[in-house]
Design a protein around this nucleic acid. Structure first.
Lengths: 103, 103
DNA sequence: CCAATAGTTCGACACTTTTGAAAGTATCAA
DNA sequence: TTGATACTTTCAAAAGTGTCGAACTATTGG
Protein backbone atom coordinates (compact mmCIF):
# COMPACT_ATOMS: atom_id res chain seq x y z
CA UNK A 1 0.00 0.00 0.00
CA UNK A 2 1.49 3.36 -1.12
CA UNK A 3 2.54 5.83 1.55
CA UNK A 4 0.26 8.69 0.48
CA UNK A 5 -2.70 6.35 0.52
CA UNK A 6 -1.81 5.33 4.06
CA UNK A 7 -1.59 8.99 5.03
CA UNK A 8 -4.99 9.71 3.55
CA UNK A 9 -6.53 6.79 5.40
CA UNK A 10 -4.82 7.83 8.62
CA UNK A 11 -6.36 11.27 8.19
CA UNK A 12 -9.82 9.75 7.88
CA UNK A 13 -9.31 7.65 10.96
CA UNK A 14 -8.04 10.71 12.77
CA UNK A 15 -11.22 12.57 11.87
CA UNK A 16 -13.20 9.83 13.60
CA UNK A 17 -10.91 9.62 16.61
CA UNK A 18 -12.59 12.37 18.60
CA UNK A 19 -15.78 11.25 20.35
CA UNK A 20 -17.68 14.41 19.46
CA UNK A 21 -16.71 14.21 15.83
CA UNK A 22 -17.49 10.51 15.76
CA UNK A 23 -20.96 11.17 17.21
CA UNK A 24 -21.56 13.83 14.59
CA UNK A 25 -20.54 11.43 11.86
CA UNK A 26 -22.46 8.47 13.27
CA UNK A 27 -25.59 10.59 13.58
CA UNK A 28 -25.25 11.58 9.95
CA UNK A 29 -24.53 8.00 8.91
CA UNK A 30 -27.57 6.73 10.78
CA UNK A 31 -29.69 9.43 9.19
CA UNK A 32 -28.32 8.49 5.76
CA UNK A 33 -28.35 4.71 5.87
CA UNK A 34 -31.49 4.04 3.90
CA UNK A 35 -30.41 6.29 1.07
CA UNK A 36 -26.78 5.15 1.07
CA UNK A 37 -27.82 1.52 0.88
CA UNK A 38 -29.61 2.40 -2.35
CA UNK A 39 -26.63 4.26 -3.77
CA UNK A 40 -28.13 7.68 -3.16
CA UNK A 41 -26.84 10.47 -0.98
CA UNK A 42 -28.76 11.98 1.90
CA UNK A 43 -28.76 15.63 2.96
CA UNK A 44 -29.15 16.66 6.57
CA UNK A 45 -29.21 20.01 8.33
CA UNK A 46 -26.32 20.37 10.72
CA UNK A 47 -28.57 21.19 13.63
CA UNK A 48 -30.14 17.73 13.35
CA UNK A 49 -26.76 16.08 13.95
CA UNK A 50 -26.09 17.63 17.31
CA UNK A 51 -27.79 14.95 19.40
CA UNK A 52 -25.63 13.44 22.12
CA UNK A 53 -22.95 16.08 21.85
CA UNK A 54 -23.74 17.69 25.22
CA UNK A 55 -23.15 21.44 25.39
CA UNK A 56 -20.47 21.91 22.82
CA UNK A 57 -20.04 25.40 21.42
CA UNK A 58 -20.69 26.58 17.89
CA UNK A 59 -17.01 27.24 17.08
CA UNK A 60 -16.15 23.72 18.12
CA UNK A 61 -18.90 22.21 15.98
CA UNK A 62 -17.76 24.30 13.04
CA UNK A 63 -14.21 23.07 13.55
CA UNK A 64 -15.28 19.43 13.74
CA UNK A 65 -17.40 19.68 10.62
CA UNK A 66 -14.44 21.08 8.75
CA UNK A 67 -12.20 18.25 9.93
CA UNK A 68 -14.68 15.67 8.69
CA UNK A 69 -14.99 17.47 5.37
CA UNK A 70 -11.22 17.92 4.94
CA UNK A 71 -10.73 14.23 5.62
CA UNK A 72 -13.14 13.41 2.81
CA UNK A 73 -15.78 11.80 5.00
CA UNK A 74 -18.56 14.31 4.46
CA UNK A 75 -19.49 17.05 2.06
CA UNK A 76 -21.15 20.31 3.01
CA UNK A 77 -23.27 22.82 1.22
CA UNK A 78 -25.02 26.00 2.30
CA UNK A 79 -28.76 26.41 2.16
CA UNK A 80 -29.45 29.96 3.16
CA UNK A 81 -28.42 30.37 6.77
CA UNK A 82 -27.95 26.70 7.37
CA UNK A 83 -25.36 24.11 6.50
CA UNK A 84 -26.32 20.83 4.89
CA UNK A 85 -24.13 17.80 5.52
CA UNK A 86 -23.93 14.53 3.61
CA UNK A 87 -21.79 11.43 4.01
CA UNK A 88 -19.24 11.25 1.21
CA UNK A 89 -19.82 7.75 -0.15
CA UNK A 90 -16.30 7.53 -1.59
CA UNK A 91 -14.72 8.27 1.76
CA UNK A 92 -16.89 5.72 3.48
CA UNK A 93 -16.04 3.14 0.82
CA UNK A 94 -12.32 3.80 1.25
CA UNK A 95 -12.55 3.18 4.98
CA UNK A 96 -14.54 0.01 4.53
CA UNK A 97 -12.15 -1.27 1.89
CA UNK A 98 -9.17 -0.76 4.19
CA UNK A 99 -10.80 -2.92 6.86
CA UNK A 100 -12.05 -5.61 4.53
CA UNK A 101 -10.52 -9.01 4.90
CA UNK A 102 -12.06 -10.92 2.04
CA UNK A 103 -12.66 -9.27 -1.26
CA UNK B 1 -25.61 4.48 20.16
CA UNK B 2 -24.51 4.55 23.83
CA UNK B 3 -21.80 7.01 24.82
CA UNK B 4 -19.29 4.46 26.12
CA UNK B 5 -19.59 2.52 22.88
CA UNK B 6 -18.83 5.69 20.96
CA UNK B 7 -15.80 6.28 23.15
CA UNK B 8 -14.52 2.79 22.56
CA UNK B 9 -14.92 3.17 18.81
CA UNK B 10 -13.25 6.56 18.91
CA UNK B 11 -10.32 4.96 20.67
CA UNK B 12 -9.98 2.35 17.93
CA UNK B 13 -10.09 5.01 15.25
CA UNK B 14 -7.51 6.99 17.22
CA UNK B 15 -5.21 3.98 17.25
CA UNK B 16 -5.34 3.95 13.45
CA UNK B 17 -4.95 7.69 13.09
CA UNK B 18 -1.17 7.71 13.14
CA UNK B 19 0.44 6.70 9.82
CA UNK B 20 3.08 4.54 11.46
CA UNK B 21 0.56 2.73 13.59
CA UNK B 22 -1.76 2.33 10.61
CA UNK B 23 1.08 0.82 8.55
CA UNK B 24 1.84 -1.60 11.36
CA UNK B 25 -1.80 -2.63 11.53
CA UNK B 26 -2.28 -2.83 7.76
CA UNK B 27 0.84 -4.98 7.43
CA UNK B 28 -0.56 -7.32 10.03
CA UNK B 29 -3.99 -7.30 8.42
CA UNK B 30 -2.51 -8.08 5.02
CA UNK B 31 -0.46 -10.87 6.54
CA UNK B 32 -3.61 -12.22 8.24
CA UNK B 33 -6.22 -11.93 5.53
CA UNK B 34 -6.31 -15.52 4.36
CA UNK B 35 -6.70 -16.86 7.87
CA UNK B 36 -9.17 -14.19 8.98
CA UNK B 37 -11.39 -14.84 5.99
CA UNK B 38 -11.65 -18.43 7.21
CA UNK B 39 -12.46 -17.37 10.76
CA UNK B 40 -9.01 -18.26 12.08
CA UNK B 41 -6.45 -15.99 13.67
CA UNK B 42 -2.97 -15.46 12.31
CA UNK B 43 0.21 -14.95 14.36
CA UNK B 44 3.05 -12.78 13.16
CA UNK B 45 6.39 -11.80 14.64
CA UNK B 46 6.58 -8.09 15.30
CA UNK B 47 9.76 -7.71 13.29
CA UNK B 48 7.88 -8.80 10.15
CA UNK B 49 5.47 -5.88 10.50
CA UNK B 50 8.04 -3.14 10.35
CA UNK B 51 8.03 -2.74 6.56
CA UNK B 52 7.44 0.80 5.35
CA UNK B 53 7.97 2.33 8.76
CA UNK B 54 11.27 4.05 7.87
CA UNK B 55 13.74 4.34 10.76
CA UNK B 56 11.47 4.47 13.73
CA UNK B 57 13.01 3.59 17.07
CA UNK B 58 12.27 0.58 19.24
CA UNK B 59 10.61 2.60 22.03
CA UNK B 60 8.27 4.14 19.50
CA UNK B 61 7.34 0.78 18.00
CA UNK B 62 6.70 -0.57 21.47
CA UNK B 63 4.47 2.39 22.22
CA UNK B 64 2.50 1.97 19.00
CA UNK B 65 1.98 -1.75 19.56
CA UNK B 66 0.61 -1.02 22.99
CA UNK B 67 -1.79 1.58 21.63
CA UNK B 68 -3.15 -0.90 19.10
CA UNK B 69 -3.50 -3.55 21.78
CA UNK B 70 -5.13 -1.18 24.31
CA UNK B 71 -7.62 -0.14 21.66
CA UNK B 72 -8.60 -3.77 21.16
CA UNK B 73 -7.36 -4.02 17.58
CA UNK B 74 -4.59 -6.54 18.12
CA UNK B 75 -3.50 -9.05 20.72
CA UNK B 76 0.10 -9.78 21.65
CA UNK B 77 1.91 -12.70 23.17
CA UNK B 78 5.56 -13.38 23.95
CA UNK B 79 7.50 -16.16 22.30
CA UNK B 80 10.87 -16.19 23.97
CA UNK B 81 12.60 -12.95 23.10
CA UNK B 82 10.09 -11.97 20.46
CA UNK B 83 6.59 -10.59 20.40
CA UNK B 84 3.84 -12.19 18.39
CA UNK B 85 0.99 -10.01 17.12
CA UNK B 86 -2.43 -10.98 15.84
CA UNK B 87 -5.41 -8.99 14.61
CA UNK B 88 -8.18 -9.09 17.18
CA UNK B 89 -11.15 -10.25 15.10
CA UNK B 90 -13.68 -8.71 17.49
CA UNK B 91 -12.09 -5.30 17.23
CA UNK B 92 -11.99 -5.50 13.47
CA UNK B 93 -15.64 -6.56 13.39
CA UNK B 94 -16.65 -3.65 15.64
CA UNK B 95 -14.99 -1.18 13.29
CA UNK B 96 -16.57 -2.70 10.24
CA UNK B 97 -19.98 -2.76 11.88
CA UNK B 98 -19.75 0.94 12.72
CA UNK B 99 -19.13 1.78 9.07
CA UNK B 100 -21.72 -0.55 7.65
CA UNK B 101 -24.64 1.03 5.91
CA UNK B 102 -26.85 -1.95 5.14
CA UNK B 103 -27.18 -4.74 7.65
C1' DC C 1 28.22 -16.10 34.57
C1' DC C 2 28.65 -12.99 30.44
C1' DA C 3 27.19 -10.95 26.33
C1' DA C 4 23.75 -10.29 22.86
C1' DT C 5 19.00 -9.79 21.41
C1' DA C 6 14.20 -8.07 21.73
C1' DG C 7 11.38 -5.44 23.76
C1' DT C 8 9.82 -2.04 27.78
C1' DT C 9 9.78 1.99 30.84
C1' DC C 10 10.90 6.66 31.98
C1' DG C 11 11.70 11.40 31.17
C1' DA C 12 11.83 15.00 28.16
C1' DC C 13 10.74 17.90 24.22
C1' DA C 14 8.39 19.62 20.17
C1' DC C 15 4.31 19.53 18.14
C1' DT C 16 -0.83 18.90 17.60
C1' DT C 17 -5.51 18.89 19.19
C1' DT C 18 -9.68 20.35 21.63
C1' DT C 19 -12.19 23.82 23.21
C1' DG C 20 -14.24 28.43 24.09
C1' DA C 21 -14.52 33.69 24.07
C1' DA C 22 -14.84 37.39 21.18
C1' DA C 23 -15.45 39.28 17.01
C1' DG C 24 -16.73 38.60 12.15
C1' DT C 25 -19.68 37.33 7.94
C1' DA C 26 -23.83 35.93 5.45
C1' DT C 27 -28.66 35.38 5.10
C1' DC C 28 -33.26 36.23 6.08
C1' DA C 29 -37.53 38.56 8.05
C1' DA C 30 -39.81 42.61 9.24
C1' DT D 1 -32.12 49.16 7.63
C1' DT D 2 -32.30 46.79 11.74
C1' DG D 3 -32.21 42.64 14.27
C1' DA D 4 -31.89 37.85 14.65
C1' DT D 5 -30.05 33.46 13.21
C1' DA D 6 -26.42 30.35 11.87
C1' DC D 7 -22.21 29.54 11.09
C1' DT D 8 -16.85 31.01 10.75
C1' DT D 9 -12.47 32.99 12.04
C1' DT D 10 -8.98 34.21 15.11
C1' DC D 11 -6.59 33.79 19.28
C1' DA D 12 -5.15 31.51 23.28
C1' DA D 13 -4.99 28.02 27.11
C1' DA D 14 -4.86 23.34 28.50
C1' DA D 15 -4.29 18.80 27.45
C1' DG D 16 -2.72 15.14 24.52
C1' DT D 17 0.60 12.82 21.10
C1' DG D 18 4.91 11.10 18.68
C1' DT D 19 9.43 10.51 19.12
C1' DC D 20 13.90 9.63 21.04
C1' DG D 21 17.88 8.68 24.35
C1' DA D 22 19.07 6.33 28.36
C1' DA D 23 18.36 2.96 31.40
C1' DC D 24 15.88 -1.33 32.37
C1' DT D 25 14.04 -6.37 32.06
C1' DA D 26 13.67 -10.94 30.08
C1' DT D 27 15.39 -14.58 27.28
C1' DT D 28 18.80 -17.14 24.94
C1' DG D 29 23.48 -18.93 23.48
C1' DG D 30 28.17 -19.78 24.72
Amino acid sequence: MPANQVDKLARMFRALSNPNRLKLFMNLLEESKLDLAKGRTHDCFLVKLLGGLGDIGAPTVSHHVKELADAGLITTERDGKQLICSVDPDGLAALRAALTVAG
